[in-house]
């Protein structure tokens, strides 16, 4: 099959999957107990106010009508307004998404780079002390309980040693000062990123490294490695050009999907570090029955994961000439 045709078929599948996910999300949120209007417990909220609020949210209509309106709006590119904020959902996501990308995507990229580099080195030196010790470090890092390590770092480095800010993305006192320059503001953000980034790096690094190591070990058994050696290539050339490139395939899948999922952020990390990202917003919207916001946030993740799958498939063909579509 030609690559173009493959992409077309997969794109069609993605669109169909996307609408199935949209329908599932719509149904799941609506069948969950409680609606946003009746959950408001305020002595000043009269039954008439609740009815008005329900009508405002479009919840007074039958479910099938709500679904059709949702589909129609979606096709028209209207993603609705958040029940809680009253603002267009896309505006809220637009505010939070860059923050999440900055932290989580950076962490995935850095941990993938470090993981792949270390993975191939320890696989090359399999059985050595370096291999054993780094593998143990990788296993520990991969299985660490995120809240524990995050709270520990906050306690030690932010509270006790006072090296880093406790939480947040910026220092308000600095940003309200009109004399603060851009460089200082950028440094301030980097300063705030250090702890959450370290936690995420620690958590992800081990996984990437272990996948790379195991894949590299398999590759090193291949005949073409023996051939390369017989050709008199240097160890570095064999490792980098022949072994690592072929071993990278499973890591590409892992990194691709992790990058897609990274926009989901992480509710736990964002909560512990008060990082104003999409993960915290997602949890908040679900617990407040803010259907439009939760739906679109989940759909965004779904869309990116579907697209990332396609990109990974295409990358496979690029990285491994034996794969044909």
């Amino acid at each position: 099959m030609h690559l173009g045709k493959f992409i077309l078929i997969r794109a069609t599948q993605i669109v169909v999957s996307f609408f199935i996910i949209l329908t599932l999300l719509f149904v799941l949120f609506r069948v969950a107990p409680g609606d946003p209007a009746s959950m408001v417990i305020d002595p000043q909220m009269t039954p008439e106010d609740v009815e008005v609020t329900r009508a405002l949210f479009g919840l007074d209509k039958p479910l099938y009508q709500q679904y059709l309106i949702c589909l129609k709006n979606f096709v028209k590119g209207e993603f609705g307004s958040s029940f809680y904020y009253g603002k267009p959902v896309i505006e809220i996501i637009g505010e939070k998404l860059p923050n999440t990308i900055l932290l989580f995507t950076t962490s995935i990229i850095l941990s993938a780079l470090a993981g792949i580099s270390w993975g191939k080195v320890i696989a090359w030196r399999r059985g050595s002390l370096l291999d054993s010790s780094v593998t143990v470090v990788g296993l520990v890092s991969h299985t660490l309980f995120l809240p524990w390590i995050a709270l520990l770092l906050v306690w030690v480095f932010a509270y006790w040693m006072n090296w880093f800010p406790l939480t947040g993305m910026i220092t308000p006192e600095l940003w309200v000062d009109p004399d603060t320059g851009t460089v200082r503001k950028v440094l301030d953000v980097l300063h705030h990123m250090v702890l959450p980034l370290s936690v995420l790096f620690t958590i992800h690094f081990g996984g990437f490294m272990l996948i790379m190591r195991s894949s590299m070990m398999e590759t090193l058994k291949e005949d073409y490695i023996v051939t390369a050696r017989a050709k008199g290539l240097t160890e570095r050339q064999i490792r980098e050009r022949h072994a690592a490139k072929n071993a990278a395939l499973p890591v590409v899948t892992s990194v691709g999907l992790s990058l897609a999922f990274s926009i989901n952020g992480g509710a736990i990390t964002e909560t512990i570090f008060s990082w104003p990202g999409i993960g915290r917003e997602l949890v908040f919207s679900v617990s407040n029955s803010d259907y439009p916001l939760a739906q679109i946030a989940f759909l965004l993740i779904a869309a990116l994961v579907l697209v990332a799958n396609l990109v990974v498939d295409v990358l496979y063909a690029y990285l491994d000439p034996r794969i044909k579509y």
């Binding site: 906050v154 932010a158 509270y159 406790l166 939480t167 512990i272 570090f273 008060s274 915290r280």
Partner: peptide, 18 residues
């Protein structure tokens, strides 16, 4: 007044103590 947002009681109490 500078209002700062913390997202959790734990973070806010640490900020208060710090």
């Amino acid at each position: 007044i500078l209002f700062k947002f913390y997202g959790s009681d734990d973070s806010a109490i640490l900020a208060l103590k710090k």
